[in-house]
Design a protein around this nucleic acid. Sequence first.
DNA 1: CCATTGATTGAG
DNA 2: TCAATCAATGGA
Length: 183
Amino acid sequence: MQALPRAFYDRDTSLVAHELLGKLLVHRFNGSELIGKIVEVEAYLGPHDLAAHTSKGITPRTQVMFGPPGHVYVYLIYGMHHCMNVVTEADGTGAAVLLRALEPVSGLTVNASGPGRLCKAMGIDKSHYGHDLCSSSLFITEDPAAMPIDIAERPRVGVDYAGEWADKPLRFYIRGNSYISKK
DNA sequence: CCATTGATTGAG
DNA sequence: TCAATCAATGGA
């Protein structure tokens, strides 16, 4: 099983978001292996995107999002849920893709539909902040059983405060998949 | 609809 | 230092 190369992430964020659909997220720890297929994502384009955390500029929390591509941006939302993002584009851009839902493939015992539940199911928490996906413990790989998929585009979720950016179709999911977090 | 929950942020 | 805010979920 081969992790995707850093060059995969060093491209246009919307393109990376599209191509992440259908890929496998793998987390190995404590001798176990958890695998889920990515079925829903959202793209956050950078400081000019008012819905992105980087729109306020670089802070201790968002600095990894401004760093080199292929790293993980994990944060706690509403005091109780972790959310996992993948940093995209060149060092300094401040863009990322939020992973919103997984289809269980191996080792997953609970529902992973929704960004908070996804992290809970995969055992992701703030200790993974800044983790390099070009590693052997937590990474994304091509699905060996990949099938052609139909991608749907919708406005992002929970970003009403972002003005015109709230309406942009930057949420992508595999049409017809029953594990997406919202209909 | 509503409560929960705490890191992060920006103000003072 | 402190209060307001939030890329969510689960339950009434």
